[in-house]
Simulated assay, not measured.
Amino acid sequence: MLCDVPGIHLGHVSLGDSGVSVVLAPAGAYAGVDVRGGGPGTRETDLLEPHNSVQQIHAVTLSGGSAYGLAAADGVMQALEERGIGFPVLGPDREGPIVPIVPAAVIFDLLVGDPANRPTRDHGYEAVQNALKGQDRDISGSIGAGSGATAGRLRGGFGQASVEIDGFVVAAAVVANPVGEVVDATTGHLYGAPGSDRVSVDKLVFLPHPAGELNTTIGVIATDAPITKAQAKRLAMTGHDGLARAVRPAHSPMDGDTLFALSTGDGTGVDTVLLASLSAAAADCVQDAIVDAITSASPGLGLTTYRELIP
């Protein structure tokens, strides 16, 4: 689970056919991002490039509602500012304003349910409160930003996975909402889990695509390994390998595939050998989180779930 990483909190607000999920790092996290989809909806991604000045972020907002859902990050910023969490503009030792650094990404879910029902500033604020309560940390499926997600012909969702590598935790939380398919129509198994339960291929191939061809898979990779900002970028990049293993095709012109990577470590950096291991783990966790999202999805919204197709 994502919250297996020390210093990370996770909270959701579910609106039935849309929602918002917030990943908090109140003490700050070194972070990077990699955007592979052709139609991204994002906020504050440029500042995460290794050559730019801001080193740490305080939260990532994942939201439904397409570009409208980016407004949820305003509420996240408000909630963090009220708690004194943010970048000290005049320096850590001087009195002055703070600015919470909150990158965000959204999925397109407007064709599922009511397109006017989308996350707002208030929902982002509420998600922070839920994260700090710890009540949502281990939940997967049709929740938060994954509430209105679709995955090819099936209902998508929010999934998590984690692994321990050389004494550090690597974890991922992913909103699986791809244009591409997650089930191999030839074998009936999940692309991301070839040993998974086999679904009825006959039923699968006759399912219409529920939401057209405008989707996105977004997520967060987190670790407590002391990687630098530039090394966080590498974890985000390799995380997309896991996405490509679980979704086919991935990174299409209609997707907005975006993965953030963050570390609650001290930012001193790791050697190349450890970075390679962390990167491989990031890809595996993204792949497993997508599988978790699909297998945990609940029936509803007129969408068919993976579990419903198992004979």
Rank of each mutant, 00 (worst) to 15 (best):
D74V: 13
P299S: 10
P226E: 04
G146W: 00
P92E: 14
G113R: 09
A172D: 02
I290P: 09
L262F: 07
I221P: 10
G32F: 05
R36F: 11
R153A: 06
K233N: 13
Y306C: 10
K229A: 02
H251P: 07
A176G: 07
P119E: 04
G269S: 09
A176M: 06
S200T: 08
S196P: 02
A67N: 09
A71H: 13
T228L: 05
L262V: 06
V35W: 03
V22R: 05
S252N: 08
D266C: 01
A246Q: 03
T187V: 01
S196R: 03
M254L: 11
G148Y: 02
V60Q: 07
Q160P: 02
A276R: 15
L90I: 01
D136V: 00
P194F: 02
V33D: 07
G32L: 02
A276G: 15
Q56T: 15
F260V: 02
V163R: 15
E164L: 10
A151N: 09
K133V: 12
A176F: 04
L80S: 01
H240Q: 08
P26Q: 05
A161N: 11
A171H: 06
I101P: 04
S279F: 01
G96S: 03
A289G: 06
P311Y: 08
G64W: 06
L110R: 10
G64V: 07
A282C: 10
A230T: 09
D288G: 09
V270L: 05
A161M: 06
F158A: 13
L154Q: 02
T238W: 00
V35H: 01
L10E: 03
